[in-house]
Write a protein that binds this DNA or RNA. Sequence first.
DNA 1: TTGTAAGCGTTATCAA
DNA 2: TTGATAACGCTTACAA
Lengths: 324, 324
Amino acid sequence: MITIDDVARKAGVSIATVSRVLNNLENVSEKTKMKVWKAIEELNYKPKILASALARHKKKFKVGICESDRLIKMEKENISPEFYSVILTFLEKIGEEYGIEFCKTKLLTPIECDGYILVGGDTTKETVKYYKDIKKPFLLLDHYIPGEKVNCIVTNGYDGAYYATNYLIKKGFRRIFHIHGPLNSYGFKGRFEGYTTAMHQANLLPKYYEYDDVKDNMEDVIEFMIKKDGIPEAIFASNDITAMRVIRELKKRNFKIPEDVSIIGFDDILSAKEFEPPLTTLKVFKDEMGSLTAKRMYELLIGHDTHPVMISLFTKFIKRKSSI
Amino acid sequence: MITIDDVARKAGVSIATVSRVLNNLENVSEKTKMKVWKAIEELNYKPKILASALARHKKKFKVGICESDRLIKMEKENISPEFYSVILTFLEKIGEEYGIEFCKTKLLTPIECDGYILVGGDTTKETVKYYKDIKKPFLLLDHYIPGEKVNCIVTNGYDGAYYATNYLIKKGFRRIFHIHGPLNSYGFKGRFEGYTTAMHQANLLPKYYEYDDVKDNMEDVIEFMIKKDGIPEAIFASNDITAMRVIRELKKRNFKIPEDVSIIGFDDILSAKEFEPPLTTLKVFKDEMGSLTAKRMYELLIGHDTHPVMISLFTKFIKRKSSI
DNA sequence: TTGTAAGCGTTATCAA
DNA sequence: TTGATAACGCTTACAA
């Protein structure tokens, strides 16, 4: 393995000088630069990123975690502490290993940082433009905006929903309904499409209803659903919170879960396992999501592979008692 | 930042011992283990991956680059040397920095390695099963199989094709045709869907023709196309090789490019710029594709974030002379 | 403009 | 069973 030492020796300079040349620092004479580049070429030397990163780590990065008002409201109301907070815990943990320090800040009026992480499904095109103009690295966590070429980390909702819906179809159900969150959120949109695609492919009629965690009332949704389309054999909800509220509402109306209606959620939040009945769901790997986010941000910060990329995590189907 | 030194000091042992505890090595007394874990907890210490990886790097990884017969044939016939070979060059370069050594091998009879990279669009479900059974990390490069939860690095063909098609639509064209490669390849499929979606949204009728780089004859395809649907105003081809052959064929028939027909390719292979006329195309970031592949493989090898992920790179529209 | 040398936070070899 | 200490490959004061 060729190292910086080899290059230095060959070029007849010190490793410090080689490092300067590699990093395009000022204060290197043209003549020396030439010598060094020649040695680099001849030896076919490739700098070792890991070592470089390690050495660089005295300089800490500061990254803002930008939350929307909606998200802050959700946190206050304890709606999703089990979801984003888990992701963020891992984000911070891994970030620290990479020399990144995080601070929470507002989505539209962020404090000065080296980079930004925009959390959640309600980041808009305008917000993205705002961050593009700042000219600092940023990425969307748990969201993507079609047509925008931006770095993002998401869950593959389509794949998970498609799987879950087919699971219900294979169980022999035909009246499978879907209750979904706002479709401007990429996550909900993907799950919606996975559901409808699976239904269409099985020649079944998709029936779906919008329900917003933050502002809608589940009682109304269920009432509307039953009035309009009757009793389902199964419901696929686009997250666990929704699934739990559906179950609560159905129980009130004396339906047995899963005997009368099978319910499947999405996310596998911590309380999904403890719920009564325990929730069948699609597990989102929140730990890896946080960890991948930290790593991607690190890459952007040190200027490697900065061309935008979508990282999409597959889910895992977890069978519990809320469904047959 | 808490380091191994802090832990060692707190626990009253040496850093060597802390390292042993962290890595679950034998030869540490239970009592010492307890002390060390206690210190780790109390300090909330997180090992630094980078440092660990750096120090560990004496042990090199060996990773197989697995190519299908089809790909090997393409390479022999010089069809795509500009595409995969560029990606693989970067893959090897970055891999080396991470202590990975690559070797080419056959898709279905790979030699023994620590991990495998399955290259190209004709990896099948069966092949994936074969590699799953080996129980070693592997990932698909430039391909994905719907329904399979496997690690893969792909190009976002949908986004690029959608953009290109809309570009042509905005130019006022209505007769926009698409010539695509085999749709079992995820890349071609995405581009196909991007094209058809854009056409549908503009209330235009998609017209498309399959053409296989390796075995089909462009003359036949163009003849069939014209006979069946007449002369297009523009053609979006699902890769540059195809686009070039389309142009060659149209020129033979005395069409002027782009005056009579606008052509857009995909990939931005090296020769796209030199072609006559230079090709308008969607640039695939082959360097970053290789680099991200190497990094992802490294993560899998050291056992971090091993849950399957799809990494999808956005393309960039490059306007040259083959289109208006 | 260049070189020396002290880190960066681990792992691994030896000796105790 | 443990501890000292030399790597690992690079960056960056500080000195020359």
